[in-house]
Computed example of a mutant assay.
Amino acid sequence: MEEDFPEYEDYQRHQRPTLVDDKSHQNHWRNRANDLHASAGAIWLSMSNERGRDAATELGLGDGFDMHLACSHVYHMLCGLSLEVAMKAALVSQGITPPEHHDLNLLAHLLGVKRNPAQKKILNFYQHSVVWAGRYPVPVNATDEKLIDYYDMANTVLYKGKTVIKGATINIKTYSPTGATSWERYDALYKSYTALFDHRYPVKAK
């Protein structure tokens, strides 16, 4: 083939994109975001009561193994990772080199997405899940204050309190899930960012 088309050998040597360049293409970014999104969905399904019991049994995890308790942090981590990669995919598709950090609110800002306080809070929660809460028991340079701040933030995202007894010196509250990180809400959030993906071939990264 090289004898018939001598320029082919030159193309192989000089014009063919490197493996890194090829894997950095916007479509690979979006595909990886979709992989993470699907993986979060698989974990979400495994955390339901009936499916969770079946999954725990089939995986040989032992009687009484609670898939929801074990996997919720990892589910949130994958939600956060998929959002991060989806946002970065959108930036790459627009010819912008994505920054090397996990700050979801900053990424949303770079994409020009306006967020209300509740939306900023959920992105902040997912960001913490990516950085450490989904992987490690404590953050880097852990302090009690860091952990308490995270627990307070996570509780306001995941639970809502209702005062059932109000006394002179003590109030008693009950807490119920907000559903803020349910599959339906997360999926809608994820799709709102994948919709920003520019399917045209990107200009050179800025």
Rank of each mutant, 00 (worst) to 15 (best):
V157F: 03
K173M: 14
L158K: 06
R16D: 11
T181D: 04
L83W: 15
Y193G: 11
L81S: 10
A142F: 06
A168N: 11
V157T: 03
N49Q: 12
D66C: 05
M153P: 01
Y159P: 10
L91Q: 02
L91F: 05
G80T: 09
P117I: 00
P98V: 00
Y75Q: 05
G161T: 01
A38L: 05
A38Y: 03
G95F: 07
Y159C: 06
V74Q: 04
A86V: 00
E9C: 01
Y126F: 09
H76T: 05
G179E: 02
F197T: 11
R200V: 01
D144Q: 07
H76M: 06
N116S: 09
L147N: 13
A90Q: 14
M153G: 01
H109F: 03
D22Y: 15
I172G: 07
R30W: 00
P177M: 07
K166V: 09
I165Q: 05
E3S: 14
K146P: 01
K146E: 10
H28A: 10
Q119C: 06
L111H: 12
I170M: 08
K160Y: 10
P17H: 11
G112S: 08
H25N: 08
Y186R: 02
N141M: 12
A38R: 02
D144T: 08
R115G: 05
G161I: 01
H109I: 00
S39W: 00
I172D: 10
D144N: 05
R53D: 02
E9M: 09
D66H: 01
D149A: 03
Q94T: 12
K121S: 15
D103G: 13
K23N: 13
K121W: 04
K204A: 13
N31C: 09
T163P: 07
D10M: 08
A56K: 04
I172H: 13
P137N: 04
K166F: 03
T178C: 09
A108K: 02
Q15T: 07
L196T: 10
L91S: 05
